[in-house]
Design a protein around this nucleic acid. Sequence first.
DNA 1: CTGAAAGCGCTTACAG
DNA 2: CTGAAAGCGCTTACAG
Lengths: 338, 338
Amino acid sequence: VAKSTPGRHVSITDVARRAGVSVTTVSHVLSGRRPVSEHTRQRVQRIITETGYQANQVARSLRMQRSYTIGLIIPDITNPFYPSLASGMQEVLRTGGYDVIICNTNADPEVERAVLTRMVTRRVDGVAFAGYYNHVREVGPAVKVGIPVVLLGTQVPGPGIDVLSTDDLAAGQIASRYLIERGYRRIGFITGPAGAGPAAERVAGYRRALSEAGIRFDKTLIAREEFSRVGGASGIARLLDLARPPQAVLCTNDVVAIGALDTVRGRGLRVPDDVAVMGFDDIDAAALISPALTTVSVIPVQQGRALGELLLRRIEGPQPEEPQRILFEPFVVARETA
Amino acid sequence: VAKSTPGRHVSITDVARRAGVSVTTVSHVLSGRRPVSEHTRQRVQRIITETGYQANQVARSLRMQRSYTIGLIIPDITNPFYPSLASGMQEVLRTGGYDVIICNTNADPEVERAVLTRMVTRRVDGVAFAGYYNHVREVGPAVKVGIPVVLLGTQVPGPGIDVLSTDDLAAGQIASRYLIERGYRRIGFITGPAGAGPAAERVAGYRRALSEAGIRFDKTLIAREEFSRVGGASGIARLLDLARPPQAVLCTNDVVAIGALDTVRGRGLRVPDDVAVMGFDDIDAAALISPALTTVSVIPVQQGRALGELLLRRIEGPQPEEPQRILFEPFVVARETA
DNA sequence: CTGAAAGCGCTTACAG
DNA sequence: CTGAAAGCGCTTACAG
């Protein structure tokens, strides 16, 4: 067995020469796309293992016009949702021979743009893009050259653009229904400052559940706050100070809910007896705090798998297909706070 | 402005033809490596923007024998340490033109091996590898062909292998010192089942701090448990049931500490007055639980940056250089439980 | 200031 | 059953 000097990759030509055959033949024993006589096959195989030959994927990509690479562009890899998504994605993509390049943008449109064009430069075979807003425009350069793209967290697909997101309206609705079923009728909602996006959808779902149950919507029960722990703390304070305070409050996400629990605890109130609290997202901490937070969850790994499958179909499946729209149904994780 | 049909990438040849120059010239206006007359430069530039030409990175990689890609191989992307690490890494690598391919192995040696050879197949310019054990061997295929590799969470470098990890012994030591400074002398430690690895290092640091302070090591104060919440819960139960229970207990990680707090709360004890509790890692939940967990932290983003810089030096710097060993000093994050 | 040509390492029609 | 050759899209000595 020859020891190769570091830094030197052995090429298919090296193998061919040592085996006394053409590179064509070596290529075919590798791919199995053409029958090769048993004798030469074994001979080539032996040389391959002797030399430790590993086909150069870069060359292969250039020739085959396929990089076997997917770009995943996300605002914040530190938000646990995305790593879970990525892991689901990889799980299915890896079996197809694809690897994924993850790019963090910090939700900076500048970076988003730069990273996107970089991905087309790398000739990725598909991209999943979670932008901060203005999705469709940002993704133009990829669409234009025919790279399949799926937009994350958006609901309206377009030409060359699939869409995958969690059904936030449904999330607000099932959370509210859960509370209503448990006898709460006066339910507050701590939401964010903006009038659009997931938070607004959740509020819409809440209103829908209310009207289903014949409960009148009372806008004094809506508190608009920052998406943060202190936002939650001050939001619930305002709600509890109302002449007729709510018996339960929905918080636009788990961190806000944890903030709400801070003031509840500070006031010596019991949860859920004096006031029930519920969040959205099911972050790790939701299960770890005490009392454990009741919340609504999606399964990001599952979304990742669906994402991977969609991409695979787009890349390898028969074209063209209608733009897809995948919506994920959330569900309640019942714990101790509601 | 011509609209290209989807799926068709424009190549440097297209640009050259339309500009009436050679591909050589186009290449040089792109790279700036050779002066080009202002006139033709502008002309070429115009065609480039008109056509939206983006150089094919795959072809460039093949020619330049550099993929501008780094492989990051980790056991669990869902463990928040790694995303933070990755983001620090990317931050520095991106400026050098490198992207990173993240591969999840689920700590499966089979997958680790497969993924590693896949990375060499892709001709990554460097790899960072966090294996479950048996590091050096697993990484052989990359070292053999001269790809710079840095092993994560290991302390001994080798030929062609750099090493980067947090100083777990120091972690145990500073945590213990912190407790000792606050007057605790009878300190317990809930550790894992194994006698090696980070957990064992932390215990070693604890013993060192004890002896520095002239406190005798008492092995009844060491509880061996699973690395889990229930492990923490039962570990502290045993410790508290001792004839002379500890006044403070160190837990091998934050989740174990949270488990310990479960039983402390269950017994109606006050923290830290009746018993202080301290963890390691500073997971998100540490700050979110109540009382907030005192723990020891490293800054993973910072490790990621150092990792990126090391890799960059290895790839682009003057070779060869001694195998590097980078150790990160942890620090106490003082909160409410100790 | 510019271009023709070689070559990076593969795959795959084409030919025998 | 096998091989010579073209070509994927670049960069870069070499030459003028």
